[in-house]
Amino acid sequence: MTTPSPELAALLVRIGDLAGQATRPTTLRAELARAAASVRQLLDAAACSIALVEPDGGSLRFFAADGAGSQAIIDITMPVGRGIAGWVAMAGQGIAVGDVSRDPRPARAVAEATNYVPTSILAVPLMDEEGAVLGVIEVLDPQLGSDDTGRALDVLGTVGDQVASIVRLAQVYDNLGAALLRALTQAEDEAGFGDALRELVATEGDELAGLAVAFHDLASLGSDASILARRVLEEVAAFARSRR
């Protein structure tokens, strides 16, 4: 492992602090919980939950919820190959389903955990800019007029687009610390650190590694540029703190 210069080390510490503040699970949970509460109010629903795709791609984990059974559902996982939320994630399409109590299988695990069996479900995918499915928003028992279901799906799809941006941003920062650590452990010296970061970008297309490269390059321009980089990071960190 390399020994970075004091200037670079300070910059790395600052980036690490920022990443930590921006990505603490409570922050993302808080943001998504607010979104779930807003959606539930918007659709006058019994509950709204947001489930995110687990890293292995095989299951969804309920990350935030509001309304009936909301506390019990947090951190419950279910396979993406089953249920309405699973289909939405797999197909990348939103649907609304009524009379779900006729077929208890899809929501059995959730219903058992929350002690709430819905009559109807609206669900849309959360997708990032590259089209990857990040998760699903599910709304239980929305109060809709007879001709409102289609419109509600459109609205939920649009809200989902915004929620996906929050998730995407959090995941980007979540990867920052790991990218920096990998680059450090692979570098022989400070110049090698920059090379290792660039290699990460080339091999993984990691946007965070790209951000790290940008700050590293800025720091390498000299002390004034390094001070500027730190100030930018401090301002962003302050902004992140004010958001909580």
Binding site: Q93, G94, A96, V97, G98, D99, V100, R102, L153
Partner: peptide
């Protein structure tokens, strides 16, 4: 059977 809505 169920009642459903969607482009799908």
């Amino acid at each position: 059977s169920i009642v459903a809505t969607g482009n799908s």
